[in-house]
Amino acid sequence: MNLTLRVWRQSGPSDAGRMVTYKVEDVSPDMSFLEMLDVLNERLIVEGDDPIAFDHDCREGICGMCGMVINGVAHGEQRATTTCQLHMRHFEDGAEITIEPWRAAPFPVVKDLVVDRSAFDRIIQAGGFVSVPAGSAPDAHSVPVRKEDADAAFDAATCIGCGACVAACPNGSASLFTAAKITHLSLLPQGQPERLSRAKAMVDQMDSEGFGGCTNTGECTAVCPKGIPLDTIAQMNSDYLKANAK
């Protein structure tokens, strides 16, 4: 396969950035998207150019480090797939592919396709935990949990924190990310004592990071590699309302 890539290049936070076109030849359909970029980068290095910086680590769809907007879609058009798990067989020979970083004010570009997602960490810091120091826990069987609740909590807890939801949201909202954690802990008995204060603190932190508000468009859940459902946001809203009513 031969491809034309249009890639966002930005040497650092203060650089204005621009789209740059590259031709990549002899791409194997069995390559992953990132391997295709590896091949291009190997060439750029040898030619003395600056290779394209992008974040990646596990390359098996679970660490949440990779992420780019491919042809206008966060993580590319294949559903429930991270960029690292996307393979070139889903592209046509001769295709032109546009590659951009996550775009959001709270995710400033560090370099090329690398963005700073530490805002997510600060949302978790605001309350995305159960306060239980090591060694203080009661026996695991002392509190039974309904299987349905445990399963639903798990579904929310599978969020990998990649930020695709923010990238896809027309409002640049982090609601799905925040709601996934709130829902995960809200559904479990262990999360009850801090339930309302957690929701309030995390939503307020999300706001003060500069993320947009949710308008329930569902773009987030459509690109989410783990398919976090939209009703987690309803759960967050409900907890947030209750917290404010108190």
Binding site: F129, V130, V132, A134, G135, S136, A137, P138, D139, A140, H141, V143, P144, V145, R146, K147, A150, D151, A153, F154, A157, H184, L185, L188, Q190, G191
Partner: peptide
Amino acid sequence: VNIIDQAVAQGVPFAREYGGLL
């Protein structure tokens, strides 16, 4: 054995049976 206790208390959603136990 303490690890499981700690993880459950933190809200780690381990697989459970219908009786609510791990």
